[in-house]
């Protein structure tokens, strides 16, 4: 039961101090003082440029001269130009390599090393698989473009195991340039997914696994009925982060293939850069950027909804 003491502060029966009533002016002021610096930086570097992009997307402007109001014409071009539609399609193809492969492999590895987490094997696995995350994407792109070269490591390996007919210039091949580049992204993102999933899996109560085993569950059943539900949040984070990386990819594409051959590996990130700075079509570039942002939000909204905290 709450009582007001002589000094006016709220205390319960045992004399413990209760929190101040929400809404007292001083606590609100303190909250604002703490929030303001971060909010100003966020507004200045994220919200204001976003609003400016929306404004630019309605213009026809070369970045230097006079700007002309263009209405929604830029958006019409983005939605109807076949090249731009193919470019947007390429980024969705990348989602398979950047998301499905790292999350799938990550789940497999996390399940496999679950019981060896503390030992040297578990630590070594986690370290080695996380290292690609530490490397700048540009360096990874350069290293991989050497490995994919005609005389590079990948082809040397294929020739060594007798798969001579599979050896080719991977990043210059019309069919395999996009998958090859997707594998670079998968390699980089695998470490992040493993880190998150391994952390999550250690939080799952081991007694659940014991109970499952006592009920006669095999490894696959354990995975399906204990691991997966327990990792719901972590999977949601992994999928969200990797989808964003796939749809907004730029560094790897710019370094590895420059968008070629043809436009088979051009992605919206790269095309926005080219439209704005090579073509000097700031309006069209901004429209493509806004469309990309909407596509990203539309893609991760279901993921977030599906893996949201369920009320217990």
């Amino acid at each position: 039961m709450q009582v007001k003491t002589a000094s006016g502060s709220n205390r319960n029966d045992q004399g413990k101090r209760l929190p101040r009533k929400k809404g007292s002016r001083k606590s609100r002021l303190v909250a604002w003082v703490f929030i303001t610096p971060a909010a100003v930086v966020y507004a200045g570097f994220v919200l204001v440029p976003l609003l400016m992009s929306v404004y630019y997307s309605l213009l026809r402007w070369d970045g230097i001269g006079k700007a002309r109001f263009n209405g929604l014409a830029n958006y019409v071009v983005v939605m109807t130009d076949p090249d731009l539609l193919q470019i947007i399609g390429n980024s969705f193809l990348l989602v398979f390599y950047f998301t499905v492969i790292p999350v799938g492999l990550g789940l497999a590895v996390a399940s496999a090393i679950r019981s060896h987490m503390g030992g040297p094997f578990g630590t070594a696995t986690r370290t080695i698989l996380f290292l690609p995350q530490v490397i700048p994407l540009v360096a990874a792109g350069i290293a991989w473009s050497w490995m994919y070269a005609n005389s590079g490591l990948v082809n040397q390996f294929l020739r060594a195991v007798g798969l001579e007919s599979w050896a080719r210039g991977w990043l210059g091949d019309f069919t395999f340039a996009l998958p090859a580049m997707g594998m670079i992204g998968a390699w980089v993102l695998l470490g992040l997914c493993i880190m998150l999933l391994v952390t999550g899996i250690t939080k799952i109560d081991p007694s659940l696994y014991e109970a499952a085993r006592l009920d006669g569950a095999g490894a696959w059943d354990e995975f399906r009925y204990v691991t997966l539900p327990g990792l719901r949040q972590e999977i949601g984070v992994c999928v969200t982060v990797t989808i964003i990386q796939a749809l907004a990819a730029f560094d790897i594409v710019y370094i590895a293939t420059g968008g070629g051959p043809g436009i088979n590996t051009t992605v919206p990130g790269l095309e926005i850069y080219r439209l704005a700075f090579a073509h000097r079509q700031v309006g069209l570039a901004s429209a493509l950027a806004i469309v990309l942002m909407i596509l990203v939000l539309v893609s991760i909204a279901p993921v977030q909804w599906f893996t949201r905290e369920r009320k217990q």
């Binding site: 019309f174 420059g258 968008g259 070629g260 051959p261 043809g262 436009i263 700075f277 090579a278 073509h279």
Partner: peptide
């Protein structure tokens, strides 16, 4: 010019070299 080079010459030459 940077624009026609990136959007015209380069992709089309790559397609021609690849037989497309």
């Amino acid at each position: 010019t940077g624009a026609i080079f990136a959007a015209g010459w380069t992709p089309e030459l790559q397609k021609m070299a690849g037989g497309q």
